[in-house]
Design a protein around this nucleic acid. Structure first.
Lengths: 151, 151
DNA sequence: CAACATTCAATGTATAGACATATATTTGCA
DNA sequence: TGCAAATATATGTCTATACATTGAATGTTG
């Protein structure tokens, strides 16, 4: 569905660029809803999921809050509080960093890794089959345009 | 900056499509931050701004909460509460619909229209000059890809 | 027309983002 | 060394999304 129909806009946009901004926000919101629903059965939010993925990507190396903040998609989000919630679910561990007591070393637990495994087919496989209305070539174009848009 | 650098991802994405999903969320978050900062001096949030724009677009016709919900970019957002906040700022009016007392007719006030006028140069003009790293042709492509992505 | 279903809006509760501020620790340098 | 600046994290407060539920008004149908 074209963006104009999606938001029932009858007047034309003042430019393709203006439309692209609206389309970007709308499409991100659309995706957000999809992802939220996919993750709901696992009891975690997209943001918490994202943190678990980053932690797994660190391998043996622990992450600090700072590291997470830098790598999170929304880097104004509050890594401290998200980590706190993950800790309550025993999905991550938090240890005072011995080198620098200001820091906190965060690692994913076995339970956290297991949860990621359980989400894999839905979050990786299914997405591609159910939502991949773009070919690889189109996805590549989209990536280039989004990168360019941010300047 | 390419998305991999932006989120300091060292491992390659499993596919261009997976990367596009991450890029979409990241770029929307980037835009969200830009817009939030642009609107902050005017004392309204992006969502409230969006509602004002929809109301202005209605012309003389009033909008109901339902109408707003349908047209909002994030249609899970809570139009009732956003309207309530706009009303407190005297930017909109809310009247019981005489035809159907379940409904509420919402209209933008003169003050609301004035606020939109004040934001115009920043939200319309400036965006294009400061953030339009895309040409019209590229914006068009982006629109097509985003529309296609949603299926 | 009465009973039931549907629609519209509001609200309760959980999660998260935006931003300022607080607190502890470390660094740097006079 | 001592003290100010910088850094890392946590927290307070406002705003907003996600979703279930409530309650009033209206539609529908036997």
């Amino acid at each position: 569905m074209r963006i104009e129909e999606a938001i029932k806009q009858n007047k034309p946009f003042s430019s393709e660029f203006q439309k692209a901004i609206v389309n970007l926000v709308y499409t991100a919101s659309w995706w957000n809803q999809v992802a939220t629903r996919l993750l709901r059965p696992f009891g975690i939010s997209q943001e918490q999921y994202n943190i678990l993925r980053i932690l797994r990507g660190m391998g043996d190396q622990p992450a600090t809050i700072k590291t997470l903040t830098e790598r999170m998609l929304d880097n104004n989000s509050n890594a401290s509080r998200l980590v706190e919630k993950l800790k309550k679910k025993a999905l991550v561990e938090r240890l005072e960093c011995p080198m620098d007591r200001r820091r906190v070393d965060i690692t994913i637990t076995a339970k956290g890794l297991q949860l990621l495994d359980e989400t894999a087919s839905i979050m990786d496989g299914n997405i591609h089959s159910n939502f991949a209305h773009l070919t690889e070539e189109e996805s590549l174009q989209l990536n280039e345009l989004l990168d360019k848009m941010r300047g």
